[in-house]
Design a protein around this nucleic acid. Structure first.
Lengths: 159, 159
DNA sequence: CACTTATTGTGAGTAATTCATAATAAGGAT
DNA sequence: ATCCTTATTATGAATTACTCACAATAAGTG
């Protein structure tokens, strides 16, 4: 059985608080949410929790490894509960939707980079992790863009 | 021979201005600089240019594809002149140093992700690009961390 | 050289996040 | 069960990175 949130918080050496439990619970229904969204969701259970407290809680949980933070370009930080498997993300350039993508290469993906190149190639990094972000269109946005394409073609045909 | 900056600006359909030339020139000596750093460098040649103008220039050059913007987690946006080859980056978690890394897999790296997974796996994205960020320690920071490790061991040995 | 319009300058405004410090509550000790 | 210590949360201000509105300027065309 999956460990109780309270237990995982405690075994991370942190105190169990209603705020932390509420944030973890909120995250269950919000696979990749930003702080503001999480705050709104948490407020349904705890109307008085402040946004700043949500920041603090998210920071503590992230540092403890109980949740994971991703920071896609052009987006505020997003948090997810799925941890420990170093999966990656596909992000829709149309609507910002995020989808989990399993690591294609195995346990430590793409962890064998080519040699450094470019003007400042001072030596070899000690690589710890590799993070892959796929940019593209989600099914819905892809559909929309194709429809637009088609209607433009029709306009040209009928001009 | 490499094309003159002025020409590449012009052939991107943009007007050639001293500000744009100065930013491109500054970027030559700053492989992965943030807006503020670029601004300081540009001011050596053009003392009156405002930070906001540098933002605007960087935005225009990025949109025109003459420079590339990267946005590593926890860092302001960085800009580089090396474009058109979809290379990747190694970033030092110690000091923030950035190093270019050639794509290991060929033209479009890691562009064949595994199937989507997780609670919200609504369908397949139309992936356009993949961005790989390697996190680790640069040679200098790696050295430092090992020295610290060693001196701690010595302390234990001599305790 | 004049004229149109892209570009830049200036200042204010915003979003996301952090910080300082006072108030509160968790969990161990009594 | 209650007290006490200290982690955690609340509150409000501050900061960072960036964007926007609009007036001033200067590229490039005729």
């Amino acid at each position: 059985m999956t460990p109780e949130p309270a237990d995982s918080i405690r075994s991370a050496g942190l105190r169990v608080t209603s705020q932390r439990l509420a944030v973890l619970e909120a995250l269950d229904g919000l696979p990749h949410a930003d702080t503001d969204t999480i705050h709104r969701r948490v407020r349904e259970a705890q109307p008085d929790i402040s946004l700043q407290s949500v920041y603090v809680v998210l920071g503590a949980l992230t540092e403890a490894g109980l949740i994971r933070r991703i920071e896609p370009a052009g987006s505020p930080a997003l948090y997810e509960r799925r941890i420990g498997d170093n999966h990656h993300h596909a992000i829709c350039t149309g609507c910002g939707a995020v989808q989990d993508i399993d690591c294609a290469v195995g346990h430590a993906p793409c962890l064998t980079p080519a040699q450094p190149t470019g003007p400042a190639a001072p030596g070899t990094f000690a690589i710890m992790t590799a993070e892959v972000t796929y940019w593209g269109l989600c099914p819905a946005c892809h559909q929309n863009s194709q429809n637009q394409q088609n209607s433009q073609n029709h306009k040209k045909e009928n001009a």
